[in-house]
């Protein structure tokens, strides 16, 4: 089933007086299949965050349509179900905390939905379990690491029980350990709970773990393919100001210098094997 469908979507932010508005999203058509793991990349200003905000009606298209499980985001009557279907996690963990105790923070969403107390408690328990933070339910988020805070922000979204989770550079402000924690959580949600994940990131190592990559450039979809196929495009990526992960860069450099090594190498093991094939023989 299609989770999110965009048909010929255009969106421009309001321009200053006397200036012409520029389309931040410029004629995008796209379908995201339920249960898939999609990475969205592109340099800053390429339109990827705008795209994310169109997914759950935070922004409405100037023209074209965005439908979420068949519901049009322009339909005001549906906006609550749309927002409960597509949860968003943003970049700065500190901006997403609303309460000084973890369980209150997670309960904020379901409380707003007007759910009965028992159900709220069940959801808070479950959400904390899903992000591996049950032992922190009575703690305060303010003394936590960035990775822990971001997992709480995810838990806060999970308590709404969305079918799709959109992460808008949610790993950008974290250290490598915090990034790993968040990636592990969203991969588990995708694999074990079949949740649809749309992950916007600048980290190419994270992109490699997705099933599908959408490269944005100038508000348009420049490439839409598997990570391996995208990173093997070499020169073309430079145009979109994207660089492949370190292993692919090394494979590419070796190939440039005449070594018999494929350019679409995606993991350290593959590069080791390729080098071993040339050097291990005797």
């Amino acid at each position: 089933m299609t989770a999110i469908k965009l048909e010929n979507v255009y969106y421009a932010y309001e321009a200053d007086e006397g200036e012409k508005p520029v389309n931040a999203v410029d004629g995008v058509s796209l379908e995201v299949e339920e249960g898939s793991f999609v990475a969205v990349v592109g340099h800053n200003g390429s339109g990827k965050s705008t795209l994310a905000r169109l997914f759950n009606g935070l922004l409405l298209p100037d023209s074209g349509s965005v439908t979420v499980f068949g519901m049009d985001t322009k339909d005001e009557k549906q906006i609550y179900s749309i927002r409960s279907s597509v949860g968003m996690v943003f970049q700065n963990p500190d901006n997403q905390m609303v309460a000084s105790v973890v369980e209150d923070d997670i309960a904020f969403g379901p409380e707003n939905l007007g759910l009965p107390r028992d159900e709220i408690i069940r959801r808070v328990d479950r959400a904390l379990e899903q992000v591996g933070m049950s032992e922190y339910r009575k703690s305060t988020p303010f003394r936590m690491s960035g990775g822990q805070k971001q997992r709480l922000a995810i838990a806060g979204v999970l308590a709404i029980r969305p079918k799709v989770i959109v992460l808008d550079e949610s790993t950008a402000m974290l250290d490598p350990k915090g990034r790993r924690e968040v990636m592990d959580v969203i991969h588990a949600l995708n694999k074990e709970e079949k949740m649809t994940v749309i992950h916007i990131t600048h980290y190419m190592e994270e992109v490699q773990e997705a099933e599908r990559v959408i490269v944005m450039d100038g508000g348009k979809i420049a490439v839409d393919d598997t990570p391996r196929a995208v990173f093997a495009r070499g020169e073309q990526l430079k145009k979109y100001k994207i660089s492949p992960p370190a292993v692919t860069l090394m494979a590419d450099a070796l190939a440039d210098c005449g070594a018999d090594i494929a350019r679409d190498i995606a993991t350290e093991e593959e590069l080791e094997d390729a080098i071993c094939r040339l050097l291990c023989k005797d």
Binding site: G42, H43, N44, Q91, E169, A172, M173, H202, M204, K241, I242, S243
Partner: peptide, 9 residues
């Protein structure tokens, strides 16, 4: 921190 790959470079 927070920059895209090109900005970092």
């Amino acid at each position: 921190a927070g920059l895209d790959p090109y900005g970092k470079e």
